[in-house]
Write a protein that binds this DNA or RNA. Sequence first.
DNA 1: GCGTGACCGGATTCGAAATCTGGTCACGCA
DNA 2: TGCGTGACCAGATTTCGAATCCGGTCACGC
Lengths: 236, 236
Amino acid sequence: MEPEERTERGERILDAACELLLAWGYRRVTTDEIARRANVGKGTVYLHWKTKDALLLAVVLRAKSCDHARQLARIRADHRNILPSRLLRWALLDFMEDPVLRAVYLDDSDVLGRLNDVAKKEMADLVAESVQTLRSQLTTLRAHGLVREDLGVDQQMYACMSIAGGFFQAEALYPEYAPDRAEDRADVLCHTVRTALETHADPDPRLIAAAAPAIIALYQRLEELSRQEVRRQLRP
Amino acid sequence: MEPEERTERGERILDAACELLLAWGYRRVTTDEIARRANVGKGTVYLHWKTKDALLLAVVLRAKSCDHARQLARIRADHRNILPSRLLRWALLDFMEDPVLRAVYLDDSDVLGRLNDVAKKEMADLVAESVQTLRSQLTTLRAHGLVREDLGVDQQMYACMSIAGGFFQAEALYPEYAPDRAEDRADVLCHTVRTALETHADPDPRLIAAAAPAIIALYQRLEELSRQEVRRQLRP
DNA sequence: GCGTGACCGGATTCGAAATCTGGTCACGCA
DNA sequence: TGCGTGACCAGATTTCGAATCCGGTCACGC
């Protein structure tokens, strides 16, 4: 079979698995049903992934990888998106849009079941890398005068993670007090991060241009790493 | 029996229940054991509370009520604590200190079991009142020029709740990335809320003095309400 | 030689019996 | 006489073995 045909079949299986995972939740999903929906035999699923967990993990990692790709594309399209406030604004919008990302970030154990724990462990490296990326990003932006220096870098990272985490969770926790439109919620997050960390509401384009290449490189690396992580689930 | 002697016995039962709840979790706590630790017969417990749930709910409500009392005392002791950044700073410190509050805010179902759901329902009124209090507080502070008006009040409430929620959750979620000292974490929260909402880092004492009475009244009402809620669990 | 589904055994679920515990109340002690 | 108590009951929960299910394999066939 052609390699590209094989890849297409793999994607079809991933799509079926994703659909079922969201509709039924981890516990009720069976490899039989996934195979049936993808129009392949059960054994074929195991030609692509060694275990069911590897397959479902791939579903989650693919969602994360797609998100990273979108973020990178956005930075490339408009360099102002290197600012944490802008980037997290988009992250919240992506998160609200994609049910897989929602399930992962909200630890939705109805959907993910024990995949929660498995995924947390498997993604530990990727998360650590994301954190390092954020750290380098903040350091670079500080050096270019785009992020303030009234707090230490570590405190700013702690702030970023807590703030973002709060807005992400708020989606599930206080839906009644959140603004109706997703963009409005994202704008409040953007405002919060900007006032907490950044120097200007609309910074000098020359500063942005100077800082952009280094940060694009960071996110490019992260995007490659996450794509690699999806592939790593496949059989050799 | 003297009313005060009866009250003291009730407190002893509450103490025993609290101790057991934290040590064993809701599921393992029995009324027998609570009674034994409080040196009373099991029937006596039911002279104070109609059900086991009412008793354990009282444990949680007492913790909340104590917290409200502390907050009110702090505002009275230093009127600058009417600012959301200061108040939330203290809230985080209280939260980190008190295992009962931690369990409630983190939805720790190992400790609270199904009390989680019961408590959420019973405390709905109190929570709604807290939200209203925050709303009035922000409105008052805006009128006195202590809180900015670049966001709407509802957006500022959403921001406050999301930010606070994020820092509270971060305690449990990313302990490895949080600053070691509790005060440092609280300071980052304070910084975030201040820059997101407030006008001055160290506002004119006259503005504070002018806004304080109205806000003290708000928190006094909240404190009374929460004390009342604890009593409401008792048998008539 | 790639794809398949019947098949195997460990994991999960089910259900009935056994145990536990919230809540009551008749008793007894002050 | 009345407050405090613990034996008691019924319903909830746990237990544990039987029954079912499903992840993963592999011999077959296209």
